[in-house]
Design a protein around this nucleic acid. Structure first.
Lengths: 247, 247
DNA sequence: CTCTTAAGTCGTAAACTGACGACTTAAGAG
DNA sequence: CTCTTAAGTCGTCAGTTTACGACTTAAGAG
């Protein structure tokens, strides 16, 4: 419904009458902020907001969650899509800490300890409710989120994990990178799926997360030699696998 | 302006298919169908449609995809929510085949073969693009989809898998059901995460799915005894775990 | 204290969305 | 062929939703 219509169309001066209630004596408390500060505040709220309600949630509700007018969002971001892009960058990519890779390569410590400590940290810092929900919403809607993240972060992580485990256990690895990645995913996928169960499926709540991580790491380390042997066996009859057609 | 990505707004391009063409003299070709048939047709299209564009996609676009008027949807379903409920039932719950559980319990066959065959079938039949995307969209939006599915289907599956593997390998299991489930998830989660990578993240495309399943099954069977031992060790100091507060 | 800048709000356009009353017409029964 | 039923469509209501022009006003500079 257009509402209002005829009477006002063409007559711009409607006398806005900004009833600011001086009578009440209460200060409006607009809390004016510096641009950088305000933008950071909006981004922080936006990542929580869209993680919770999905990327199709409305800018009005986001503005309400920020305690500002909806119009203000458009002073800091040209469009909702641009806002979402910044949310991705801030909430998806930046949580991964480079130091983790260095610690994973610290061969003075047992491999199982390194893996356990890393995945506890990764679970707590990256695989949070907010991160997972944003990542899934973005992947379902656009499909380019996850491949970028994998190329930028996960692949190097998987290669590190597999290389370090192989070195610690004196196991020979296959040479194919794709195969190495899948080996790493045996652990990475198991932990990631646990996080999805917790934060998206709302399941697996009754067990301590350290225990789950410990179980998956134990399985991985124990079966690693057999896993590598099975992967190497595939390389004998590698004949340029046909690429799956998308969908 | 509309977001640059149509998927962001959950809205596919609506094709103006409704051609009246009285001028051309061609019959409108309304293709009148029997109610049961039409309803099944709408449900089939709807599961594809909502899997692709999300549960927030619009009824007008769905009607266009069905080649019927939007109004017709409301002859078969009282509301969009009711339509979605039927889509869940038809597309999420029904693909799981009861015979799989029976085959998993067939102790005349090696456990690794049983697991391999089952997860190949489960991957091809259940963990499809459509199923996964619907399941994720529903879980992200409502939170009661996954728990129901887990209670109805997954828990029994996990218990069967763990029990059969333990029997085949003569391994003693922990008594706690939650712990048994997490053991089973070591394999189930790894395969499920692979499917999510393929169908949602659009990654891990360059390796044959049988190989991935074979790798995960091999790891699981090889490390199962150690996994069970680690799980049993947790039972000594079970002290009524505190329930996680939801966020 | 006054002036200037820009942070922040208001109101609304234009398009979108779920739902439904009223109408049209295909197709099986007799 | 006619009649009756119900499959299917049109048009629209009422409430949303992104985006933006116009305006208000807090707060630092001099």
């Amino acid at each position: 419904m257009r509402a209002r219509s005829k009477l006002l169309s063409g007559t711009p001066a409607v006398r806005p009458v900004r009833a600011k209630e001086k009578a009440s004596g209460k200060a409006p408390v607009v809390a004016r902020m510096a641009p950088a500060e305000r933008k950071a505040m909006i981004l922080a709220r936006a990542s929580d907001f869209f993680a919770e309600y999905g990327l199709t949630a409305q800018t009005r509700a986001l503005a309400a969650a920020c305690g500002v007018a909806q119009r203000l969002l458009y002073r800091y971001f040209p469009s909702k899509a641009a806002l979402l892009d910044e949310v991705y960058q801030e909430a998806i990519v930046s949580p991964f800490k480079a130091v983790w890779l260095i610690q994973l390569r610290d061969r003075t410590r047992p491999i199982e300890t390194r893996l356990f400590d890393f995945y506890r940290a990764y679970y707590s810092t990256v695989l949070t409710r907010k991160w997972l929900r944003l990542f899934l919403y973005a992947s379902l809607a656009e499909a380019k989120m996850a491949p970028d993240y994998n190329d930028a972060i996960v692949h190097e992580l998987l290669e590190t994990i597999v290389a370090e485990t192989a070195h610690a256990l004196k196991v020979e690895l296959p040479s194919d990178r794709v195969l190495l990645h899948e080996m790493g995913y045996a652990l990475h996928g198991a932990v990631s799926h646990f996080a999805i169960r917790r934060h998206v499926y709302i399941a697996s709540q009754q067990i301590l997360e350290e225990r789950v991580v410990a179980l998956h790491v134990r399985l991985f380390v124990t079966g690693f030699a057999a896993l590598a042997a099975a992967a190497r066996a595939f390389e004998d009859d590698v004949v340029e696998l046909p690429r799956r057609t998308a969908r």
